[in-house]
Structures are given as C-alpha cells and as structure tokens.
Write a protein that binds this DNA or RNA. Structure first.
Length: 489
RNA sequence: GCCUGAGUAGCUCAGUGGCAGAGCACUCGUUUCAUAAGCGAGAGUGCGUGAGUUCAAUCCUCACCUCAGGCACCA
C-alpha cells in the first residue's frame, strides 16, 4: 500500500478560526479522503502553532494566562474536525512535549549550519517588536506609539540557508519538490535567484517573555517560532521520540508527502523547511499545495471591518456538507475566492437542492412507485457504464483541481436529468425497458455517491444508505431530502 | 519602486491571429417522476485603456490603468 502523508499548516492560535482556516482544512481533507478511497495508507495531520510571542500579547490584552488562551483557541481549531467532518488522524500542538523534544533534536542535528551573530535593530518597547526603517513614520517614530524606537543589539542564532540555495533551486526546478500551482514555483525560483541570506532562528528569552522552546544548551534563547513550527510535521510522526515507527513509515519512506498551505506561508515551506531537512539529512516533502485566500464580499476578512465569518456558525446554519461544497466548488482550489451568503445559498439551491438532491429524490420515488424498490438487481447498459468510467478517469486525473472535479461530477447529474426527460420512465409500460432505465440511473447515482465522498462525506453516506446496494442488488429505502431547498422571504 | 499573475455576458470563469463561448442568474415555452425542481428555447453585444505589427487582434508588441500576490526573519 502506498503511504501518503498529508498535512494542513498549523494556524496561530492568538485568534479563533475563520472561514479561511476552514477552507484549508476542507481542501486537505478532500485530498486525504481521496487517497483513502484509492486504498492508499493515509496519515492526515493538523495542529496548532502555539509558541508565538503574539499569543503572549493577546493573552495579556485579555488578562488571562497564555497557557489558558492557547489551550482554549487550540481547542476551537480542533473542533473544526467534528464541525466540518474533517478526517485528520492526529492533531499536534507545538506546546506538547513530543513536539518540544523533537524540535530540539532537529536543532541539534542541524548544528553544523547554525552559528551566532549579533543583530541590531530598531526596537519599540511599547510594541515589543523590531521595526524596519521603512516601517517607521517620516520622523522615524513607531507608527503605533509615536515614540522613537531604541537601537537594540542582540546576539542570536542564524541558520546557514546559503549552504542550500543551489540544491533547493534544483529540487524546485525539477519538481522533486513540486510546488502547485506553477505560478508559485516560478515565484520562488526567482526569489532564490535574487540571492538568499541566512536567517535568524532564535530570539532572546527575555524578548520572547519566556514563552517558546528553549534553544538546546542555551536557555537565554528561544527558538524562533517558524523554525519550531515547521518541525511539527515530523514531530507529530514521532521524530525524536522513542518510537519513530510512523516517522520512518510516512516521512523517511518513498510514499507521498504533501503540505497543504496558504499562499502567504508557502515560502517557508518551499525554501526554509527543505533547507532544514537537507541540513538534518532527512527526506523532503514531495509536494506543496498552495491555496489562495477567501474574501468576504470582495473585502479582506478582518476584525476591524467586522466581516469575519465563523465557520462554526455557518455550519450550524447550513450543514457541514453545504459549507464544504461551497468552499470546494466556488473557491478555485489554487486561487482566491469570495464568500457571500448569497453566493452560498445560490450554490446550495441550484447545485445541491435542485441538482443532486432533486435528481436523487425523483429517481428513488419513481423506482418505488414502479414497485422495484426491493431486491432490484441492477444491470446498467454499456453506454452508462462507459459514461461513468470516462468520468472516473477525468476525476482521478484532475482531482487536485477540486472545484473542476466537482463540476465534472455535476455533468453526470445533468446528464441523468436529461436522460429521465428523454426516456420518461414513469410513463413506460414495458417492464424490461423500464428496469433498464432505472438500472442506469441507479448505477450513475451510486457512482456519484462514491465520487462525492471526499467532498461531501455525509451526503455520500446518506445516498449509499438509501440505495442500499449489495453486489448489484438494491433494496431502496428512500429517506429525507438530501438538501431541502432554502426559502427566503 | 521592482517582479509576477489577472482584467472576456449580471456573477464565476473557458477560449482562439480570421464570424466571441460555458455554467449560474434572467425571460419565455413545456412537463409532472421530483425539493415551484427537470427539459427546451431566448435575451444578454462583452474581450481594461491607448498606440503599434498584420490583409486581419480579444488573442502578438509597447505604454498606461485597476486588482491580487511576492520583494526574507512578517499567517
């Protein structure tokens, strides 16, 4: 069995999940479920990134301990699993001991590429952040506090990224590490060509307010959160623990290793992470799936605008499969997309209620009325079998373009509706012919139910339960509507 | 400022050096097995702007405009 390791990125937990996080979870889930359906041995990982200084600042604002904030928000991300029916196998928090141990081990293994260097920067005490000169006001003041930042010198650890620039370039060029979509690949190649520099991988413990993972052998320094966060992908598999079985199976083997990440952090995954792994002598990811961002009514989601969409609330209102369908069908898999309630409801009513739901209902009703609901042995004709087989080929070829794959499945829905219209099975008196027509329809529906599983797992199950087919013999139990139409006003 | 990508029907997008397309939405017709769903027909005159190359450009070149993203220690 082919091993397939799929990850989401691990979100910051200084705020609660929004629709963008839901998109990534659901996309990664569709990919993971698809591989399971292909009988691959899949390990699907998610988690949260908890060692950022931002968490300390957010907790201070709320007047609660950092651990409490981190715990609470991490739980909300984990909750998306049940809310959206996301099938991850493990969920790692970077404050867990298993992660800390592994992260420190990787640091130690990379030590030949790590060195100390003085770093000087303009530091605003109020913000607790370094500013670049161009970020300051014209007078050279902090944009937040309007005070002159101090020039602070700090000694930090740096990673010799320069040692790996050439190798990474080759790896990306040759698709040994495949960056999807192609446009991003080119972006990073030109980024590398513009010249890489070593990057800083630690903070003083003081500046980090004591939050984060200690640099091994130097408790005055904390590991910079990105260096730490990336390592979650292997610590979750047991890297650095007593039992590295999963790590050997899913990372060091020759299976697939896919990171699903947002476009904003793709660079860390395409350049820093491979460099760290090369330094440690470990395998690299095989592919990075870089998705876009969701806007709400054309605007960036932000707290100040007040247009942040809560995936949990959305799911309560419309159901997990409806939200999943919207995210996977309306938002281009590798591009940006826009959410509005109107768009969601439009998709719901036209594709799910009037499309799939209605087709399913009318077919099963006709079969029941014809008295064929029990022990119906399905014998689809060659045309139908070929139509389905052709769809499956396209489906597997282009699965990664999730929205296109869904559109492709819906062409079969439309085709079935047209077939019903042409044949008018309700008016046919020839029993054999009627049986053949229903055979074809039920066969198509059974396949549609299977093909939508990675996208709409609950609906898939409902359909298969209603069709209740065993070895080509169906005992139909028509249930409730799959998608009751949304009525407005 | 520099780099990349995008700018096509109300919406989402496909597409080609030579009469400009699909789905959804809309209008009309039709049907009843079905969730006022389905099917058929129709309307939509639109290829960001300006110039150039060409017999001919939406597709090539240049400039400009708008949007998105990248320009490292910042999801």
């Amino acid at each position: 069995m082919k091993k397939v390791f799929i990850t989401t990125s691990i979100p910051y937990v200084n705020a609660v999940p929004h629709l963008g996080h839901a998109l990534e979870f659901v996309q990664a889930d569709a990919l993971a479920r698809h591989h399971r359906n292909l009988s691959d041995d899949v390990w699907f990982l998610s988690g949260t990134d908890e060692n950022s200084l931002k968490n300390v600042q957010s907790a201070e604002k709320l007047g609660i301990p950092v651990t409490e904030l981190v715990e609470k928000n991490s739980q909300k991300f984990h909750d998306l699993k049940d809310v959206l029916n996301v099938s991850f196998d493990d969920f790692i928090r970077t404050t867990e001991p298993r992660h800390i141990v592994g992260a420190q081990k990787l640091w130690a293994v990379c030590s030949k590429d790590i060195y100390k260097k003085k770093y000087a920067g303009l530091y605003c005490v109020g913000c607790e952040e370094f500013y670049k000169e161009e970020e300051l006001t014209e007078e050279g003041f902090c944009p937040e506090h309007g005070v002159k930042p101090e020039l602070i010198e700090e000694e930090n650890y740096f990673f010799k990224l320069t040692n790996y620039a050439e190798r990474i370039k080759k790896i990306i060029e040759t698709d040994e590490l495949k960056i999807i979509p192609e446009a991003r690949k080119n972006e990073y190649l030109s980024f590398i060509n513009s010249g890489l520099q070593d990057f800083c991988i630690s903070r003083s413990a003081e500046r980090a307010k004591g939050w984060g993972i200690d640099v091994p052998g130097d408790s005055t320094q904390k590991i910079w959160v990105w260096f730490d966060a990336l390592i979650n992908y292997i610590t979750a598999l047991g890297y650095g623990s007593e039992d590295e079985t999963k790590f050997k199976e899913f990372w060091q083997g020759d299976g697939a290793r896919l990171h699903v990440v947002g476009k904003g952090i793709t660079r860390f995954h395409a350049i820093y992470w491979p460099a760290m792994l090369l330094s440690a002598g470990l395998n690299l990811p095989k592919a990075i799936f870089s998705h876009g961002y969701i806007t709400v009514d054309g605007k960036k989601m932000s707290k100040s605008v007040g247009n942040v969409v809560d995936p949990i609330e959305l799911t309560k209102k419309y159901g997990a499969d409806a939200v999943r369908y919207f995210l996977l069908r309306e938002i281009p898999a590798l591009g940006d997309g826009d959410f509005t309630f109107e768009k969601l409801e439009k998709r719901y009513n036209s594709d799910l209620a009037s499309g799939l739901g209605n087709l399913f209902a009318r077919t099963l009703t006709m079969v029941e009325k014809a008295g064929l609901a029990e022990d119906f042995e399905i014998k689809p004709n060659e045309f139908t079998k070929k139509e389905v087989a052709d769809l499956i080929v396209k489906y597997n070829d282009n699965f990664i373009n999730l929205n296109e794959t869904l559109a492709e499945i819906w062409t079969l829905v439309a085709s079935c509706d047209k077939y019903i219209e042409d044949q008018k099975p309700w008016s046919i008196t020839d029993a054999a012919l009627q049986k053949e027509i229903f055979s074809n329809l039920l066969y198509s529906l059974k396949n549609i139910a299977e093909l939508i599983e990675p996208f709409l797992p609950t609906t898939s199950k409902k359909m298969l339960n209603a069709l209740n087919g065993q070895n080509g013999v169906y005992n139909i139990k028509k249930g409730e509507s799959l998608f009751p139409r949304i009525q407005n006003d």
